[in-house]
Amino acid sequence: MAGIVAWGSYIPRYRIKVEDIAAAHGGDAEQIKLGLGITEKSVPGIDEDTATIAVEAARRALKSSKLSPKEIGAVYIGSESHPYAVKPTGTIVGTAIGLSNDYTTADFEFACKAGTAAMQVAAAWARSGMADYVIAGGADTAQAAPGDPLEYTAAAGGAVFIIGEENVVAEINQTLSFTSDTPDFWRRKEQKYPGHGGAFTGEPAYYRHITEATKMLMKDVGTKPEDYDYAVFHQPNGKFPARVAKLLGFTEEQIAPGMVVRKIGNTYSGSSLLGLAAVLDIAKPGQRILLTSYGSGAGSDSFDLIVTGRIADRQTKSVESQINDKVYISYPKYLKNTGKLA
């Protein structure tokens, strides 16, 4: 059965506090922290982008897997901030992790679920035998216009997984998707910042797709919420995943280990995958993990994962240590790092 062989994560070191963003726009920091369920977010260095984040995460995944680069047959990176409009991020990642030329790549894009879409394709490649191992994941330096409520959450980071049939640490028992044409959040061609439908991003978008995909998955594999040790949902803020978990019948204990959003914000294509990486960092053999992503536009990919006995060899608590390894920066420095101030 195809599954996760190894994982690697990367979170930039810089953080900005909600208080510092609120001060720039005259917002009430305490109310915003309460409303969004986050206290600070990660910010990329001035020299970091989706390609550099994906490279660092992929290098860690490859090192942890102990595989030879020759065994990787494909590289699929999902993002909504690929550095080039035309010129694949996957070629930069493939070369930087030491692959030669006998692999395939293409970039994925589906708002915040591009990374899980890449993982589904990777699992299909592994199951079909078209490649022994495939690198798939999501990374973003999330964009938000200054003053937009999104600015409090749009963060930077990513997680990359090696998917294969051998040496699996978490089996992908099942994965399926729920997709519709729902314009809740978008970015038009050549626009710098995304637009969104405000409250419309909630009920008909995030909540509908996540609940439908998760219910479909649990019906398909015959599970109930209590059968899972951990559940990870897409994390645009701290509030949505907590509420969707409750609606579906999951507890705070099941979701807490994967709720990285509270400390680093929404890393878009990296969001639910960094949550999964945090859970894999502590999971034990035999435990069951539910993962449901959400991408605006709109769709959700749901995964039923079962942890194997090999997991301990790969665990480094990397997500937790990166969350705690931080340098706070001011709002003007944040504007410089994210290219909003020359």
């Binding site: 260095g45 020299d47 390609a51 550099t52 660092e56 290098r59 930069i92 930087a96």
Partner: peptide, 20 residues
């Protein structure tokens, strides 16, 4: 070593990546 952006050749040019 870390993998970073080294230089951008203008807004329209290539991005050079490398070691820092």
């Amino acid at each position: 070593v870390v993998f970073r952006k080294i230089m951008e050749h203008g807004a329209k040019g290539v991005i050079q990546y490398g070691y820092k």
